[in-house]
Design a binder for these strands. Structure first.
Length: 427
RNA sequence: GGAGAGAUGGCUGAGUGGUCGAAAGCGGCACCCUGCUAAGGUGUUACACGGGUUACCGUGUCGAGGGUUCGAAUCCCUCUCUCUCCGCCA
């Protein structure tokens, strides 16, 4: 969440930065609009309450003293009975004002960094660089390729669970597993990440810590009868590993990689990517997560993005890097690079990884802090990025590795993970 | 799911109605002494919020939320979590 001190110190600057996400973010109905007034009211009530509490504490102490000395305190007791009533009322008022302020605070997104380009949606994103040779020949879509090879079964997925679910078979299933293994090995052995394995179900507090809640509950799968959710990304459990903790500065940066399944309701994306396995309710992902000092967030983002790129390069998949414009940034992000892989059947680049810096936004929400040189605990900066989305990676491999005879070549780097298999062909 | 025990500061662990934000120990920090590694002495050492914004003052926080009381770490209720035993189970 945004820094409340900053909110009071420089509300105009903050407003201007938020407005770049879209006018509605600071519009009349926005959480932002409610904040100023709620903050003033909250502080006013609190001041009154504290004055009264101070009196109560002072007189109560005097009563204790008198009683011990055997003196009469009837008068004070009568007066304090009234004060106690008023304290109770004020407490209730102050509490509800504080809660309203706190709720509004949780609904304000992260102000984009000044360096983030202007723009309203993905068409305004800025391409930074390209890697690899793209093939321009006619290539079937991955779902056709996969069905023809008997490794993707969309009908079975639909029968078992519904639309946006896929069953992967045989060499395809092994490929899914190989990709997970390959990526985790690369990040742990070459890039120095500590692997963790985490729950795929988390509670409300954890979901709030990284910013999925309270605003985006409709995008999440919620467990019936429990205040718990399926994770939409490993970012949630891995970042929150350190919630409400004060970290030793010497430990930073902490860098984790994790494989998890991810679950998304994809509400509001009806009609988009309905064919194939590009947009699924359940998919696998290897995620990279950093906790670092605020001043190292941006250099860290470059490094982390490079680690995700290294996976695509090792697999020989052509891609480009774009920087998201202010209007396309996710709720918690202050700056984001997307990696987009070339899909020959669509003749366009599609997102396969998203690498973001959150600044201290998540650290503040989740209470993840470190002790700086002055001995003061302050929120850490967090970063994360997909390294990579497994399902979309499998899609890209099928299309980019497709041969005219219908088979699909396995990149050399992956062959050891496929038992030496060099191509997937029809039996 | 059933029975029992517990939850206190960075950690260990005292504290059953009023000078308790909380003993003691460990750890951390500062200084002194000493002057090979080491050991010893003294002091200091939670966080948040609000007001002055420098040395200060106030409020809240002893798992969470409610209640009793002039006053709660201490008494009552609810919830959460941890541990032990039983049941079930990959």
């Amino acid at each position: 969440m945004i820094d409340r001190h900053e909110l009071r110190r420089a509300p105009e600057e903050m407003r201007a930065a938020l407005a770049r996400r879209g006018a509605e973010v600071v519009g009349p109905d926005s959480a932002w609009a409610r904040l100023q007034e709620l903050d003033a009211r909250q502080r006013q009530l609190k001041r009154e309450l504290e004055t009264l509490q101070a009196e109560r504490n002072r007189v109560s102490k005097a009563i204790g003293l008198k009683k011990r000395q055997g003196e009469d305190a009837t008068e004070e007791l009568a007066r304090m009975r009234e004060v106690a009533q008023r304290v109770k009322q004020l407490e209730a008022a102050a509490k509800s004002a504080e809660e309203a302020f706190g709720l509004a605070l949780l609904e304000v997104p992260n102000p984009p960094l000044d360096s983030v380009p202007d723009g309203v949606d993905e068409t305004d994103n800025v391409e930074l660089r390209r890697w690899g040779e793209v093939r321009q020949d006619e290539v079937p879509s991955h779902d056709e390729i996969g069905e023809a090879l008997g490794i993707l079964d969309f009908e079975a997925g639909a029968r078992l669970a519904g639309s946006r679910f896929t069953v992967i078979c045989g060499a395809g299933a092994r490929l899914e597993r190989a990709l997970i293994q390959f990526m985790l090995d690369m990040h742990t052995e070459r890039h120095g990440y500590d692997e963790v394995w985490v729950p795929a179900i988390v509670n409300r507090k954890t979901m709030t810590g990284t910013g999925q809640l309270p605003k985006f509950e409709h995008d999440l799968y919620k467990l019936e009868g429990e205040d718990a959710f399926l994770i939409p990304t490993a970012e949630v459990p891995v970042t929150n590993l350190y919630q409400e903790r004060i970290l030793d500065a010497a430990r930073l940066p902490i860098r984790h990689c994790a494989y998890t399944p991810c679950f998304r309701r994809e509400a509001g994306s009806a009609g988009r990517d309905v064919r194939g396995m590009i947009r699924q309710h359940q998919f696998d992902k290897v995620e990279l997560v950093w906790l670092t000092r605020p001043e190292h967030a941006l250099s860290g983002l470059e490094t982390l993005t490079g680690h995700a790129e290294a996976v695509l390069q090792a697999l020989g998949l052509p891609y480009r890097v774009v920087e998201l414009c202010a209007g396309d940034l996710g709720f918690s992000a202050q700056k984001t690079y997307d990696l987009e892989v070339w899909l020959p059947s669509q003749r366009r680049y599609r997102e396969i990884s998203s690498c973001s810096s959150f600044g201290q936004f998540q650290g503040r929400r989740a209470g993840i802090r470190y002790r700086n040189e002055a001995g003061k605990a302050e929120p850490v900066a967090t970063l994360n990025g997909s390294g990579l989305a497994i399902g979309r990676c499998l899609v890209a491999l099928l299309e980019n590795g497709w041969q005219a005879d219908g088979s699909v070549l396995i990149p050399e780097a992956l062959q050891p993970y496929m038992g030496g298999l060099q191509r997937i062909a029809n039996a």
